[in-house]
Simulated scan of single mutants.
Amino acid sequence: MVTEQRTISYMGVNIPAPVLPIELHVLPDFTGRVVVHFEKGRAICDRRLHESEHVATLDGFLELARMAGYKVRNEK
């Protein structure tokens, strides 16, 4: 797979964006979503998401639940 090198601007100078080399455990013709877990800049595992699976923050999940009509209490 060939990708274009992106650049970022730092103090008015364009520099190449850092690239983390990772190997994903999917077939070469895979199309879909993958969650990757990084520790200290290294990919330690990856997991393919199935069509029925979704990823959200807790706040995002609660907002979605409210939009669906659920009553969500704030307990602190």
Results as ranks from 00 to 15, higher is better:
residue 1 M to Y: 03
residue 2 V to C: 02
residue 2 V to D: 12
residue 2 V to M: 08
residue 3 T to Q: 12
residue 4 E to M: 00
residue 5 Q to N: 09
residue 6 R to L: 11
residue 6 R to P: 00
residue 7 T to R: 03
residue 7 T to P: 01
residue 8 I to Q: 14
residue 8 I to W: 15
residue 9 S to W: 10
residue 11 M to Q: 15
residue 14 N to V: 00
residue 14 N to W: 02
residue 15 I to N: 12
residue 15 I to D: 09
residue 15 I to P: 03
residue 16 P to A: 03
residue 17 A to F: 15
residue 17 A to M: 15
residue 19 V to Y: 10
residue 22 I to S: 08
residue 22 I to W: 07
residue 23 E to N: 13
residue 24 L to C: 06
residue 24 L to E: 13
residue 24 L to F: 09
residue 25 H to V: 13
residue 25 H to L: 11
residue 25 H to Y: 09
residue 26 V to H: 10
residue 29 D to Q: 11
residue 29 D to R: 05
residue 31 T to N: 13
residue 32 G to K: 08
residue 34 V to G: 00
residue 34 V to T: 06
residue 35 V to K: 08
residue 37 H to R: 15
residue 37 H to S: 08
residue 38 F to H: 07
residue 38 F to E: 03
residue 39 E to V: 05
residue 40 K to L: 01
residue 41 G to Y: 05
residue 42 R to V: 12
residue 42 R to K: 13
residue 43 A to G: 12
residue 44 I to W: 02
residue 45 C to L: 08
residue 46 D to P: 03
residue 48 R to A: 09
residue 48 R to K: 09
residue 49 L to W: 07
residue 49 L to V: 04
residue 51 E to W: 05
residue 51 E to Y: 07
residue 51 E to V: 03
residue 54 H to R: 13
residue 54 H to N: 11
residue 54 H to Y: 14
residue 55 V to C: 11
residue 55 V to E: 06
residue 58 L to I: 14
residue 58 L to P: 01
residue 59 D to G: 05
residue 59 D to Y: 07
residue 60 G to P: 00
residue 61 F to C: 07
residue 62 L to V: 13
residue 62 L to A: 06
residue 63 E to W: 01
residue 63 E to F: 12
residue 64 L to S: 10
residue 64 L to M: 14
residue 65 A to W: 14
residue 66 R to L: 10
residue 66 R to I: 01
residue 69 G to N: 02
residue 69 G to F: 01
residue 70 Y to C: 05
residue 71 K to D: 12
residue 72 V to S: 03
residue 73 R to D: 15
residue 74 N to F: 07
residue 75 E to Q: 13
residue 76 K to R: 13
